[in-house]
Amino acid sequence: MTGTRGFLVRRLMTLLLLSAAVTAALFTAYYGVSRNTHAVRDESAPAILQVAAAEVALDDSYDGAERSLTGGTGDIEGLGEDYRTTLSTANQALAQALKSTTAGTSARQSLLTVTGLVSSYGDLIQQAYVNRDNAALRDAYLGYAETMLRGGDGSAARVRPGDSDILARLAKVQGKQLRLLDQQTSFGRLLTLAWWVLVPAAYLAAAVLLVRTQRFLRHRFRRRFNPALLVATGLLLLAVPTLAVLSYQTQDRLSQARTSLRQPNIGNAPDTTNKRVSTKMAETHWRTGAVAWIPMGGVLLAALVLVGLQPRIDEYRFRAR
Protein backbone atom coordinates (compact mmCIF):
# COMPACT_ATOMS: atom_id res chain seq x y z
CA MET A 1 0.00 0.00 0.00
CA THR A 2 1.47 3.33 -1.01
CA GLY A 3 1.75 6.22 1.41
CA THR A 4 -0.95 8.22 -0.35
CA ARG A 5 -3.35 5.29 -0.45
CA GLY A 6 -2.75 4.54 3.21
CA PHE A 7 -3.39 8.18 4.07
CA LEU A 8 -6.64 8.20 2.08
CA VAL A 9 -7.85 4.97 3.69
CA ARG A 10 -7.17 6.36 7.15
CA ARG A 11 -8.86 9.63 6.23
CA LEU A 12 -11.87 7.73 4.90
CA MET A 13 -12.19 5.71 8.12
CA THR A 14 -11.83 8.86 10.22
CA LEU A 15 -14.49 10.71 8.25
CA LEU A 16 -16.88 7.77 8.46
CA LEU A 17 -16.36 7.59 12.23
CA LEU A 18 -16.92 11.34 12.55
CA SER A 19 -20.06 11.07 10.43
CA ALA A 20 -21.36 8.42 12.82
CA ALA A 21 -20.37 10.56 15.82
CA VAL A 22 -22.14 13.65 14.45
CA THR A 23 -25.25 11.61 13.67
CA ALA A 24 -25.32 9.93 17.10
CA ALA A 25 -24.71 13.17 19.02
CA LEU A 26 -27.25 15.11 16.97
CA PHE A 27 -29.89 12.39 17.21
CA THR A 28 -29.45 12.11 20.99
CA ALA A 29 -29.56 15.87 21.51
CA TYR A 30 -32.50 16.51 19.20
CA TYR A 31 -34.54 13.55 20.43
CA GLY A 32 -33.86 14.60 24.01
CA VAL A 33 -35.58 17.93 23.39
CA SER A 34 -38.48 16.72 21.25
CA ARG A 35 -39.35 13.41 22.91
CA ASN A 36 -41.87 14.81 25.40
CA THR A 37 -43.89 17.17 23.21
CA HIS A 38 -46.73 14.68 22.71
CA ALA A 39 -46.72 13.69 26.39
CA VAL A 40 -47.04 17.33 27.49
CA ARG A 41 -49.92 18.00 25.12
CA ASP A 42 -51.84 14.72 25.44
CA GLU A 43 -51.10 13.63 29.01
CA SER A 44 -49.64 16.20 31.38
CA ALA A 45 -51.70 19.22 30.31
CA PRO A 46 -55.11 17.48 30.57
CA ALA A 47 -54.19 15.84 33.89
CA ILE A 48 -53.01 19.09 35.46
CA LEU A 49 -55.99 21.07 34.18
CA GLN A 50 -58.52 18.50 35.42
CA VAL A 51 -57.11 18.60 38.94
CA ALA A 52 -56.98 22.41 38.85
CA ALA A 53 -60.60 22.54 37.66
CA ALA A 54 -61.66 20.19 40.45
CA GLU A 55 -59.91 22.37 43.06
CA VAL A 56 -61.60 25.56 41.87
CA ALA A 57 -65.03 23.95 41.48
CA LEU A 58 -64.94 22.39 44.96
CA ASP A 59 -63.80 25.63 46.54
CA ASP A 60 -66.58 27.51 44.75
CA SER A 61 -69.16 24.85 45.65
CA TYR A 62 -68.80 25.53 49.36
CA ASP A 63 -69.10 29.27 48.88
CA GLY A 64 -72.23 28.73 46.79
CA ALA A 65 -73.78 26.42 49.39
CA GLU A 66 -72.97 28.80 52.23
CA ARG A 67 -74.53 31.75 50.40
CA SER A 68 -77.70 29.79 49.73
CA LEU A 69 -78.07 28.49 53.28
CA THR A 70 -77.18 31.65 55.17
CA GLY A 71 -78.62 34.19 52.75
CA GLY A 72 -82.26 33.47 53.38
CA THR A 73 -82.99 31.96 49.96
CA GLY A 74 -82.56 28.30 50.93
CA ASP A 75 -86.29 27.69 51.27
CA ILE A 76 -86.94 29.05 47.78
CA GLU A 77 -83.90 28.01 45.79
CA GLY A 78 -82.66 25.03 47.80
CA LEU A 79 -78.90 24.74 47.70
CA GLY A 80 -78.82 26.93 44.61
CA GLU A 81 -77.78 26.46 41.05
CA ASP A 82 -74.22 27.61 41.72
CA TYR A 83 -73.63 24.83 44.24
CA ARG A 84 -75.13 22.10 42.09
CA THR A 85 -73.24 23.22 38.98
CA THR A 86 -69.87 23.55 40.67
CA LEU A 87 -70.19 20.23 42.52
CA SER A 88 -71.15 18.49 39.28
CA THR A 89 -68.18 20.13 37.54
CA ALA A 90 -65.89 18.97 40.33
CA ASN A 91 -67.10 15.38 40.10
CA GLN A 92 -66.66 15.34 36.32
CA ALA A 93 -63.16 16.82 36.62
CA LEU A 94 -62.22 14.24 39.27
CA ALA A 95 -63.46 11.40 37.07
CA GLN A 96 -61.33 12.66 34.19
CA ALA A 97 -58.34 13.30 36.44
CA LEU A 98 -58.57 9.75 37.74
CA LYS A 99 -58.24 8.45 34.17
CA SER A 100 -55.50 10.82 33.07
CA THR A 101 -53.29 11.45 36.10
CA THR A 102 -49.60 11.35 35.27
CA ALA A 103 -48.40 11.07 38.88
CA GLY A 104 -48.62 7.29 39.12
CA THR A 105 -50.41 4.77 41.30
CA SER A 106 -50.19 6.79 44.53
CA ALA A 107 -51.84 9.78 42.87
CA ARG A 108 -54.58 7.58 41.44
CA GLN A 109 -55.22 6.18 44.91
CA SER A 110 -55.35 9.69 46.34
CA LEU A 111 -57.88 10.72 43.71
CA LEU A 112 -60.02 7.69 44.53
CA THR A 113 -59.92 8.75 48.19
CA VAL A 114 -60.81 12.31 47.21
CA THR A 115 -63.78 11.07 45.19
CA GLY A 116 -65.10 9.29 48.27
CA LEU A 117 -64.49 12.34 50.46
CA VAL A 118 -66.33 14.57 47.99
CA SER A 119 -69.35 12.29 48.28
CA SER A 120 -69.20 12.63 52.08
CA TYR A 121 -68.71 16.38 51.73
CA GLY A 122 -71.86 16.55 49.59
CA ASP A 123 -73.77 14.61 52.26
CA LEU A 124 -72.71 17.12 54.92
CA ILE A 125 -73.87 20.02 52.76
CA GLN A 126 -77.18 18.19 52.24
CA GLN A 127 -77.56 17.77 56.00
CA ALA A 128 -76.95 21.46 56.46
CA TYR A 129 -79.76 22.09 53.99
CA VAL A 130 -82.10 19.65 55.76
CA ASN A 131 -81.43 21.50 59.02
CA ARG A 132 -81.54 24.96 57.49
CA ASP A 133 -84.18 26.11 60.00
CA ASN A 134 -81.92 25.21 62.94
CA ALA A 135 -79.06 27.67 62.73
CA ALA A 136 -76.87 25.77 65.20
CA LEU A 137 -77.13 22.45 63.36
CA ARG A 138 -76.92 24.10 59.95
CA ASP A 139 -73.73 25.92 60.88
CA ALA A 140 -72.29 22.79 62.49
CA TYR A 141 -72.79 20.75 59.34
CA LEU A 142 -71.40 23.58 57.23
CA GLY A 143 -68.37 23.69 59.52
CA TYR A 144 -67.81 19.95 59.18
CA ALA A 145 -68.10 20.27 55.40
CA GLU A 146 -65.64 23.15 55.30
CA THR A 147 -63.15 21.28 57.48
CA MET A 148 -63.39 18.23 55.24
CA LEU A 149 -62.86 20.44 52.20
CA ARG A 150 -60.35 23.04 53.37
CA GLY A 151 -58.77 21.66 56.51
CA GLY A 152 -58.90 22.40 60.21
CA ASP A 153 -58.26 26.13 59.90
CA GLY A 154 -60.86 26.59 57.16
CA SER A 155 -58.34 28.38 54.95
CA ALA A 156 -57.81 27.90 51.26
CA ALA A 157 -54.06 27.34 51.69
CA ARG A 158 -52.97 24.59 49.37
CA VAL A 159 -49.70 23.40 50.93
CA ARG A 160 -50.25 21.94 54.36
CA PRO A 161 -47.99 18.92 54.96
CA GLY A 162 -49.78 16.15 56.79
CA ASP A 163 -53.27 17.52 56.20
CA SER A 164 -55.81 15.11 54.79
CA ASP A 165 -58.58 17.44 53.67
CA ILE A 166 -59.80 17.33 50.09
CA LEU A 167 -57.98 20.38 48.75
CA ALA A 168 -54.71 19.41 50.45
CA ARG A 169 -54.88 15.94 48.87
CA LEU A 170 -55.54 17.47 45.46
CA ALA A 171 -52.65 19.88 45.98
CA LYS A 172 -50.29 16.98 46.67
CA VAL A 173 -51.41 15.19 43.49
CA GLN A 174 -51.00 18.40 41.53
CA GLY A 175 -47.53 18.92 42.97
CA LYS A 176 -46.43 15.51 41.69
CA GLN A 177 -47.89 16.22 38.26
CA LEU A 178 -46.18 19.59 38.06
CA ARG A 179 -42.83 18.07 39.03
CA LEU A 180 -43.23 15.58 36.19
CA LEU A 181 -44.11 18.46 33.86
CA ASP A 182 -40.90 20.22 34.91
CA GLN A 183 -38.91 17.10 34.02
CA GLN A 184 -40.64 16.81 30.65
CA THR A 185 -40.02 20.43 29.71
CA SER A 186 -36.62 21.03 31.31
CA PHE A 187 -33.51 21.34 29.14
CA GLY A 188 -31.37 19.77 31.85
CA ARG A 189 -27.65 19.13 32.24
CA LEU A 190 -27.44 16.20 29.84
CA LEU A 191 -29.04 18.14 27.00
CA THR A 192 -26.83 21.13 27.80
CA LEU A 193 -23.79 18.86 27.55
CA ALA A 194 -25.06 17.36 24.30
CA TRP A 195 -25.88 20.66 22.58
CA TRP A 196 -23.01 22.76 23.89
CA VAL A 197 -20.20 20.17 23.90
CA LEU A 198 -20.82 16.90 22.05
CA VAL A 199 -22.63 18.18 18.97
CA PRO A 200 -20.31 21.19 18.39
CA ALA A 201 -17.18 19.08 18.92
CA ALA A 202 -18.22 16.37 16.45
CA TYR A 203 -19.61 18.94 14.01
CA LEU A 204 -16.48 21.11 13.94
CA ALA A 205 -14.15 18.13 13.73
CA ALA A 206 -16.06 16.66 10.79
CA ALA A 207 -16.35 20.02 8.99
CA VAL A 208 -12.66 20.88 9.41
CA LEU A 209 -11.56 17.42 8.26
CA LEU A 210 -13.83 17.54 5.21
CA VAL A 211 -12.38 20.91 4.19
CA ARG A 212 -8.81 19.73 4.74
CA THR A 213 -9.47 16.56 2.79
CA GLN A 214 -10.76 18.54 -0.18
CA ARG A 215 -7.71 20.79 -0.07
CA PHE A 216 -5.44 17.74 -0.03
CA LEU A 217 -7.27 16.15 -2.97
CA ARG A 218 -7.13 19.37 -4.96
CA HIS A 219 -3.39 19.61 -4.41
CA ARG A 220 -2.63 15.92 -4.94
CA PHE A 221 -4.93 15.15 -7.87
CA ARG A 222 -5.01 18.57 -9.50
CA ARG A 223 -8.81 18.70 -9.49
CA ARG A 224 -10.47 21.88 -8.39
CA PHE A 225 -13.50 20.27 -6.72
CA ASN A 226 -14.58 16.90 -5.39
CA PRO A 227 -18.37 17.06 -5.98
CA ALA A 228 -19.33 14.37 -3.44
CA LEU A 229 -17.21 15.83 -0.63
CA LEU A 230 -18.42 19.32 -1.51
CA VAL A 231 -22.04 18.17 -1.15
CA ALA A 232 -21.17 16.35 2.09
CA THR A 233 -19.64 19.53 3.50
CA GLY A 234 -22.68 21.56 2.48
CA LEU A 235 -25.02 18.99 4.01
CA LEU A 236 -23.14 19.08 7.29
CA LEU A 237 -22.89 22.87 7.40
CA LEU A 238 -26.60 23.25 6.67
CA ALA A 239 -28.14 20.39 8.64
CA VAL A 240 -26.60 20.88 12.08
CA PRO A 241 -27.41 24.61 12.48
CA THR A 242 -30.90 24.03 11.06
CA LEU A 243 -31.63 21.25 13.56
CA ALA A 244 -30.17 23.38 16.34
CA VAL A 245 -32.64 26.16 15.49
CA LEU A 246 -35.54 23.70 15.34
CA SER A 247 -34.49 22.27 18.69
CA TYR A 248 -34.40 25.75 20.20
CA GLN A 249 -37.88 26.49 18.88
CA THR A 250 -39.23 23.21 20.28
CA GLN A 251 -37.69 23.90 23.68
CA ASP A 252 -39.12 27.42 23.64
CA ARG A 253 -42.64 26.07 23.09
CA LEU A 254 -42.18 23.48 25.84
CA SER A 255 -41.16 26.28 28.19
CA GLN A 256 -44.20 28.32 27.17
CA ALA A 257 -46.46 25.33 27.83
CA ARG A 258 -44.91 24.89 31.28
CA THR A 259 -45.42 28.57 32.05
CA SER A 260 -49.08 28.36 31.00
CA LEU A 261 -49.71 25.27 33.13
CA ARG A 262 -48.05 26.85 36.16
CA GLN A 263 -50.16 30.00 36.07
CA PRO A 264 -52.29 30.54 39.19
CA ASN A 265 -56.01 29.84 38.90
CA ILE A 266 -55.73 27.88 35.66
CA GLY A 267 -58.71 25.91 36.94
CA ASN A 268 -60.94 28.94 36.30
CA ALA A 269 -60.55 28.54 32.53
CA PRO A 270 -59.10 25.08 31.87
CA ASP A 271 -60.38 24.91 28.30
CA THR A 272 -58.65 28.17 27.39
CA THR A 273 -55.37 27.02 28.89
CA ASN A 274 -55.64 23.62 27.23
CA LYS A 275 -56.25 25.27 23.85
CA ARG A 276 -53.22 27.53 24.35
CA VAL A 277 -50.98 24.59 25.26
CA SER A 278 -52.32 22.45 22.42
CA THR A 279 -51.67 25.25 19.94
CA LYS A 280 -48.09 25.64 21.12
CA MET A 281 -47.46 21.90 21.03
CA ALA A 282 -49.09 21.57 17.59
CA GLU A 283 -46.43 23.96 16.30
CA THR A 284 -43.78 21.41 17.31
CA HIS A 285 -45.36 18.50 15.41
CA TRP A 286 -43.32 18.71 12.22
CA ARG A 287 -40.24 19.76 14.17
CA THR A 288 -40.53 16.62 16.27
CA GLY A 289 -40.78 14.56 13.09
CA ALA A 290 -37.43 15.94 11.97
CA VAL A 291 -35.73 13.47 14.32
CA ALA A 292 -36.30 10.80 11.65
CA TRP A 293 -34.28 12.84 9.19
CA ILE A 294 -31.13 12.62 11.28
CA PRO A 295 -30.24 8.91 10.72
CA MET A 296 -31.06 9.30 7.02
CA GLY A 297 -28.85 12.36 6.85
CA GLY A 298 -26.06 10.46 8.59
CA VAL A 299 -26.28 7.64 6.07
CA LEU A 300 -26.25 10.15 3.22
CA LEU A 301 -23.24 11.94 4.68
CA ALA A 302 -21.29 8.69 5.03
CA ALA A 303 -22.26 7.67 1.48
CA LEU A 304 -21.05 10.97 0.06
CA VAL A 305 -17.74 10.63 1.89
CA LEU A 306 -17.34 7.11 0.52
CA VAL A 307 -18.22 8.18 -3.02
CA GLY A 308 -15.82 11.09 -2.79
CA LEU A 309 -12.79 9.15 -1.51
CA GLN A 310 -13.12 5.60 -2.77
CA PRO A 311 -12.28 6.41 -6.43
CA ARG A 312 -9.14 8.23 -5.31
CA ILE A 313 -8.15 5.25 -3.16
CA ASP A 314 -8.72 2.89 -6.07
CA GLU A 315 -6.27 4.88 -8.15
CA TYR A 316 -3.55 3.70 -5.76
CA ARG A 317 -4.70 0.10 -5.49
CA PHE A 318 -1.71 -2.15 -5.03
CA ARG A 319 -1.62 -5.31 -7.14
CA ALA A 320 0.82 -8.05 -6.37
CA ARG A 321 2.80 -9.42 -9.32
Rank of each mutant, 00 (worst) to 15 (best):
R160M: 04
K176T: 05
L180H: 01
Q214K: 13
L238H: 13
L229I: 10
A157C: 07
P161D: 04
L235S: 13
S164W: 01
D153M: 02
A157Y: 05
A206W: 01
A232K: 03
V199H: 03
D163A: 11
E146H: 09
T147C: 07
A168N: 07
Y144I: 04
Q214C: 10
F221Y: 14
P161A: 12
G175M: 01
F225Q: 14
R158N: 00
A201C: 11
L170R: 06
R189Q: 14
A206P: 00
T213N: 09
R218V: 07
L243M: 15
V231M: 14
G234D: 15
V208F: 12
L181W: 00
A201Q: 09
R160F: 02
R179I: 05
L236A: 13
H219S: 15
T242D: 10
T233R: 11
R218Y: 07
T242C: 11
V159E: 09
L181D: 01
D153T: 11
R158P: 00
F187D: 00
V211E: 15
G234Q: 15
A156E: 09
L236N: 10
A228T: 13
Q214Y: 04
Q214S: 08
L235Q: 14
A232S: 13
A244M: 06
F187K: 02
R212A: 06
Y248E: 14
F187W: 01
W195L: 05
G151H: 03
L190H: 12
T147R: 15
D163P: 04
L178A: 06
L229C: 10
K176N: 03
T213S: 11
A239G: 08
F221G: 04
A244G: 10
A145C: 07
R223T: 11
